[in-house]
C-alpha cells in the first residue's frame, strides 16, 4: 500500500500515525509540508531509518525544492520522485492511504 503524508511531523501527528499503522513492505511518500520530515539530523530521523528497514520512504522532489531543501540533506535511503513517480507509486501499489 502507498501511504502519503502531507504534514510536517513537527506540527501534526500524521507521520506518526502513518508509521504506526503502515505495515512492513509499504511505500511511504512525503508530500507538501510532509517533506520537511525527510531531512537529516531531526528528532525523527531514527524513526525513519528504522521504518526503512522494512518499508520504502519517498519524498516529492518539487515540494522539497519549493521549501529550499536540497536532496543532499535527505536522510540516507529516502528516494526522491517527481509527480510522474508519484503516479507510478500509486499505480504500483494496490491502494492509497492519505494521512492528512
Amino acid at each position: 500500500m502507498l501511504h502519503t503524508v502531507n504534514k510536517s511531523p513537527f506540527e501534526r501527528n500524521s507521520l506518526d500515525a502513518c508509521l504506526g499503522l503502515a505495515k512492513a513492505g509499504s511505500a511511504i511518500l512525503l508530500i507538501e509540508d510532509g517533506v520537511v520530515g525527510a531531512i537529516k539530523g531531526t528528532t525523527i530521523e531514527s524513526k525513519l531509518t528504522e521504518t526503512m528497514q522494512s518499508s520504502k520512504i519517498y519524498v516529492l522532489g518539487p515540494d522539497l525544492a519549493a521549501r529550499g531543501l536540497s536532496e543532499d540533506k535527505l536522510v540516507d535511503g529516502i528516494q526522491v520522485v517527481d509527480y510522474g513517480g508519484f503516479v507510478d507509486l500509486a499505480a504500483e501499489n494496490t491502494a492509497v492511504q492519505s494521512w492528512l
Binding site: A22, K23, A95, S98, L100
Partner: peptide, 18 residues
C-alpha cells in the same frame, strides 16, 4: 490494537480520508 488495525487497513481497496 494498532497492529490489528494495520492489518485491517492493509486489506482495504478504497480509503477515504477527510
Amino acid at each position: 490494537s494498532r497492529a490489528e488495525l494495520a492489518d485491517v487497513i492493509a486489506g482495504q481497496d478504497i480509503l477515504l480520508n477527510f
